[in-house]
Design a protein around this nucleic acid. Structure first.
Lengths: 205, 205, 205, 205
DNA sequence: GATGAATGAGCTTTCATTCAT
DNA sequence: AATGAATGAAAGCTCATTCAT
């Protein structure tokens, strides 16, 4: 079997095993066995456990960001962009459940080399969402009355909500990507429209 | 030093160490040293690494749920309940950063015994929020036009948004609990009010 | 068993095993078994294979240099100093055959950390011998007609000869330290006296 | 490229690599790469790491012994024979530094198969030197008053001295083979002449 | 109540060696 | 004649856990 293909299978196996048991708990023995090869071969191709994991995270991050960016089409109206981005995201999380685990749970759990990678990916998504919200505010309003700091907060909230719904969908197979996206659009877009339109909850404290 | 107090100090140390380095990376040696006692004493009191971690998770979960429940006062109007619950939550995450790490990151990263505990805690919070949203819909509307499944989805979204904002606050010390709560209320409550009032985003797909 | 004693026994075992099979060939398992303890204990006390070996080399070097220095008494006439130094050296090599192997063969065979240590030891011995020869030349002659570079060469030759005779004695148990010392004195001192007295072989090339 | 030549290049590479890093530290990968061929080819020609090393040691031993024997011309007077033998030896050690390392350090460091080979070579040299010394004694004296055992000891001393000076020359490039040979002749021949002439150091102990 | 001393089990990594082509 | 692909075996090291005191 040619090297490139074997390597891909190893990454598949690693994502599967690490996604399920975590980085530390996954032993190289286990990963090699899941890939159907011997351990030395894994080392020959991927060099070390750390590099192997890095390669997994990078590949999954590229896949996810790519899918979301492909969904968000610059010309569309903001709500449609968001809707399609979310759908792409939930679809990724459903179809590559182990990959999503690797990105969302496993990578963020381990010091420097991995957490930074996962953060970079998350920040790319956050930037997308931030731009979207700012855009919506501007297009609705003529001028943006939402300060950057607040927009960023909203983006964080939105991304966190999406992550949470993806996790929920992971444990309830009847929840389709479309339904999760609909739920989140209902929650988020209605609120954002309101905000943009000047409706705002006033603290009673 | 009386046993109860020593035990508390051990848990403090364990939460600190595990919160920072993770369950697997934290060695019993390290924890014992951080607690200022010898390793056998840790075993005498807490029996095993697993039980020690379980005790940490349980204590932190009790603390967090307690704080949130104390905030949510049954008689208050729904928005005020939510506001106070969120404030309590962000305050906990800020004041006991290591504890929050243990609950949010560390516990969910390790098989069965711990993930289940963390889930239980999360579900208590979710139940609280779900009830709150249903309540708001009912009080505003007379009848709830929001089906249970959707309310649950909204609750998940809200909780995920809160978690994300807590993480954000963790890496930007200028973000106070109140500001995080305000951001989330702006995001969530405006939308919820809209939903309840029948405003709803219509999918274009 | 108290730590200090155990540690000494570990070093004994390590010197024995490494002296016989060499640094690389000696496994930590083997050394631990020879010391009658478990491998983790060896690591607990000596930290790593490298540090363990370093400790061996240092201890043996100290022992050997100490023995030789104790033999060479500053007040004695040079030939007597040399004779006693050599006797002490051959006695060490005979009594601690494994230690001698460690210093002479094993340590010089491995990069930087160890070779340097062994070299340092050898240089201490060389310095001693160099001083002795220079001294002999001076005392015999009033003035030294032997240039430093040549004296150094002679010292190297003498030390090499001693090492070679020690190795020979190692494989022929009937050779006592005294006999080796006598052989070398016969070889070296007669020549040195001759050199000092101006007798010198003239190259025919 | 014809097999014989390829094989020679492999041995060259092996001597180079093993001479510098040692037998164990040198990996077959490294040697194959240094030889500019693939690993299986090394196995095809040399069968195993052990046989490869054996071939190296044998070749270098043959080269060294051959060079020394070519120097020692049977008809010459003993001192001239020794002088030329030493010069040949130091020249070999300087010109084939890696080969000398292999013989002197690497081969003697590893069990049975190699140490024996190196010993055989050393014994050939020792026999040469022993014969030379006995010869000198006889020719000077009519009858040899030096017992065989002592002559052997002197030969060991002389060879050890030569080895030590070769090592010294290895770390100081200004030392030419001729100078090393001169130093050793000064040291050894003056003494041997004295011995033969009946001058002898009398132990004071 | 508290600890110094000790270990079984397991993990990552490396390397000599061999097929199939 | 030559190699890319693959592996069995073993080594260094760590850690949760337990006695004996």
């Amino acid at each position: 079997m040619p090297r490139a293909e074997r390597e891909r299978e190893m990454l598949d196996a690693a994502v599967r095993v690490i996604g399920r048991s975590g980085y530390q708990a996954a032993s190289m023995d286990e990963i090699a066995e899941a890939a159907g090869v011997s351990k030395p071969l894994v080392y020959l191709y991927l060099n070390s456990k750390e590099e192997l994991f890095t390669a997994c995270v990078e590949r999954e991050a590229r896949t996810l960001v790519g899918a979301v960016q492909a969904g968000v089409r610059a010309g569309d109206p903001p709500d449609r962009q968001l809707w399609r981005g979310l759908t792409a995201f939930f679809r990724y999380a459903a179809e590559r459940a182990d990959g999503w685990q690797v990105l969302h749970i496993r990578a963020r759990t381990h010091g420097e080399p991995f957490a930074r990678l996962a953060d970079t990916m998350r920040e790319q998504i956050l930037a997308l969402v931030t731009a979207l919200i700012a855009d919506a505010a501007r297009s609705e309003h003529g001028t943006r009355d939402l300060p950057a700091r607040e927009v960023e907060g909203l983006a964080h909230a939105l991304v966190g909500a999406a992550e949470s719904l993806a996790t929920r969908a992971g444990s309830d197979p009847t929840l389709t990507p479309a339904e999760s996206a609909r739920t989140l659009m209902a929650f988020a877009w209605t609120g954002l429209e309101g905000l943009v339109a000047g409706r705002r909850w006033a603290a009673g404290e």
